[in-house]
């Protein structure tokens, strides 16, 4: 028998071996490993695992959908902007559909199977539902005789749209005022419909509030929105900058 290995031997695992192990892990686990001890942290940095709040580029992986024991999950590739050749796998939580509408403070905006908007954290797999699509006023649910939603009517003169499909074009961009996991006091701003409406949802209120609308006959549309120094701003295609207050922001400032 060789001498029993001292308890700390794993901390001295050669860095090329740890790098090899890290390649088999998904990004959230690789980040966990990187913060176990100082020598692993050094090895993880050498293996290209970014330690800090690096920006990430997300794309769908080649095998987009996998079926696991609990149902369907989406597979994505994450690339650090510091090393775009290195790809990390991240399997997103179930219930997220294939419609994405922005990322904010580390959270992704996604539409679920009923085309309701939710916030999804790709690293903790936590999800936070936002108020349902039917609360946005311009969308009406079509229900079967048992009350289940089988489709949506977007606007008065539109044809019925399938429950999954409306989420793929209806949401244009969502931004958050702060990280929802830091304190519950966040506000979500949403550009939706034909990119001509802006609504807000304040955490805990459970409803969308329509803040601004460009008439549909007008050719202009909302192009982008940001949260900056306590205020939400929206930019239109024709170059108009709108300052949009949210109730929480107004209350705090």
């Amino acid at each position: 028998m060789a001498d029993p290995c001292p308890s700390s031997c794993w901390a001295d695992l050669p860095s090329d071996l740890l790098g090899r192990i890290l390649q088999l892990l998904e990004l959230p686990e690789a980040l966990s490993v990187a913060s176990v001890c100082m020598s692993w942290s050094t090895a993880a940095s050498a293996a290209g695992v970014p330690r800090s709040h690096t920006p990430w580029l997300m794309s769908w992986s080649d095998d987009l959908l996998v079926n696991d024991s609990k149902g369907r999950a989406c597979c994505t590739d994450f690339r650090s902007l510091l090393d775009t050749y290195k790809v990390y796998d991240v399997t997103l939580s179930r219930g997220c559909s294939l419609a994405w509408c922005g990322s904010s403070h580390g959270w992704l905006g996604a539409a679920d199977e009923l085309s309701n908007l939710l916030l999804c954290n790709p690293f903790t797999f936590a999800t936070i539902p936002l108020p349902p699509i039917t609360d946005l006023g311009c969308v009406e649910a079509v229900r079967d005789c048992e009350g289940s939603i089988v489709g949506y009517l977007p606007g008065k003169k539109q044809n019925r749209v399938g429950v999954k499909w409306i989420g793929r074009w209806f949401y244009h961009k969502v931004v958050l005022s702060c990280d929802p996991s830091q304190n519950g006091n966040y506000t979500a701003m949403l550009i939706h419909y034909y990119a001509n409406q802006i609504s807000f949802a304040v955490a805990g209120e459970g409803c969308w509030r329509l803040a601004s609308t460009i008439p549909q006959q007008n050719k202009d549309r909302y192009a982008d929105c940001v949260f900056h120094r306590g205020r939400f701003y929206a930019l239109t295609l024709c170059g108009t900058l709108e300052l949009c207050f949210s109730p929480v922001v107004m209350g705090n400032s």
């Binding site: 794993w10 901390a11 192990i21 892990l25 686990e29 966990s32 176990v36 001890c37």
Partner: peptide
């Protein structure tokens, strides 16, 4: 890698008996 999957840094330290030297 299987021993590390789905674990937080604390849980990984426990599995591999690694001291937190930060």
């Amino acid at each position: 890698s299987e021993m590390m999957k789905g674990k937080s840094p604390d849980q990984i330290r426990e599995v591999f008996n690694i001291k937190n030297d930060y």
